[in-house]
Amino acid sequence: MTETARTEGATAAGMVDQPGRVRAGEELDVGRIDAFLKAADPGLRGVPEVLQFPGGASNLTYLLAYPEHDLILRRPPFGHKAKSAHDMLREARVMQALRPIYPYVPQVKAICDDPDVLGCDFFVMERIRGIIPRQDMPAGLSLTPQETRRLCLSVIDRLIELHAIDPVAAGLGELGRGDGYVRRQVEGWSDRYRKVRTPDSADFETVMGWLADRMPATETAIRIVHNDFRFDNVVLDPDEPIRVIGVLDWEMATLGDPLMDLGNSLAYWVQADDDPTFLALRRQPTHLPGMLTRAEVIAYYGERTGLPVDDMDFYMVYGLFRLAVIVQQIYYRYAQGQTSNPQFAGFGKIARYLEKRCLAAIGSS
Rank of each mutant, 00 (worst) to 15 (best):
R90Q: 06
R90E: 05
R90N: 03
E91D: 01
A92D: 03
A92G: 04
R93H: 10
V94F: 02
V94A: 08
M95F: 02
Q96R: 15
Q96V: 14
A97P: 07
A97V: 00
A97C: 02
R99N: 03
I101N: 04
I101L: 05
Y102L: 01
Y102P: 04
P103C: 09
P103F: 02
P103R: 14
V105E: 03
P106Y: 11
P106G: 10
V108E: 03
K109M: 15
K109E: 11
K109P: 04
K109H: 08
A110S: 10
I111F: 02
I111Q: 00
D113F: 00
D113W: 00
D114W: 01
P115A: 04
D116I: 02
V117A: 09
V117Y: 07
L118Q: 15
G119Q: 07
G119E: 03
D121T: 09
F123P: 00
F123D: 04
M125G: 03
M125Y: 01
E126R: 05
R127V: 07
I128R: 13
I128F: 12
I128N: 07
I131Q: 00
I131S: 09
P133H: 13
P133R: 14
P133S: 15
R134I: 05
D136R: 15
P138L: 08
P138S: 10
P138C: 14
A139D: 15
A139M: 12
S142M: 10
S142L: 10
S142Q: 13
L143K: 01
L143R: 11
Q146Y: 07
T148S: 06
T148F: 00
R149V: 09
R150M: 13
R150N: 10
L153D: 08
L153P: 05
S154V: 04
S154R: 14
S154M: 09
V155N: 06
V155C: 13
I156K: 08
R158D: 06
L159M: 15
I160R: 02
E161G: 12
L162W: 13
L162E: 07
H163T: 06
